[in-house]
Computed example of a mutant assay.
Amino acid sequence: MAPSSMARVSGRAGPEAPIDLVQLATNTLGNRDLEVQVLHLFKSQSSTTLERLACETDQAARLDLVHTLKGSARAIGAEKVADVCENLEGRMHSSSEAGTEGLIAAVDEANRYIRDLLEG
């Protein structure tokens, strides 16, 4: 995952990218192997979290899932996902009917970017 290859990912490696690669590098102390590991972990965890969120009926458990995903997103520089999680948390506190469509879209975008980054 050299910087030159990162810049080619879907033509998006700047502020508009779903993952801030500078933040990712900072959080992993520039360790490329660790970057790859945490990206794989996020991709897997975020997909599992969305599946669990779709089936979970307990509001406290749903909030925990969203909160955990928010922290994971911030750790890899997926600020859009983290911001959507934060917004969803607020809506979930006031309504048990808060929809997750925006979260699903943000996670899908981040995971496509990760896939392109790791396979590209």
Results as ranks from 00 to 15, higher is better:
L39W: 02
Q37A: 12
Q45T: 14
R52D: 15
V84H: 02
N111H: 07
C85H: 00
G14P: 01
Y113E: 05
A98Q: 08
V36E: 14
Q23Y: 05
T28R: 00
G90N: 09
E56I: 02
E56M: 09
E89Y: 08
N87V: 10
G102S: 11
E97K: 10
I104S: 14
L117I: 07
N111P: 04
V36D: 09
T49G: 02
R74F: 05
L69V: 02
R12A: 12
L103C: 04
R62Y: 01
K43E: 10
A25H: 07
V36G: 01
H67V: 00
E89S: 01
P18C: 09
A17C: 10
A78Y: 05
S94A: 12
E97P: 04
E89P: 04
D58N: 15
A78K: 00
T57A: 13
S47W: 06
S96Y: 01
S96L: 07
V81H: 04
S44R: 13
L34F: 15
S95H: 09
D83C: 07
A82S: 09
G99N: 11
D116I: 03
H40D: 10
P15Q: 12
G99I: 06
A73H: 04
S5R: 14
V38F: 12
E16T: 14
A110D: 04
A60V: 11
Y113I: 07
A13D: 14
T49N: 02
R8C: 11
Q59T: 07
E86P: 00
T26D: 08
V66H: 00
T49E: 01
L24T: 09
E89K: 07
L69D: 00
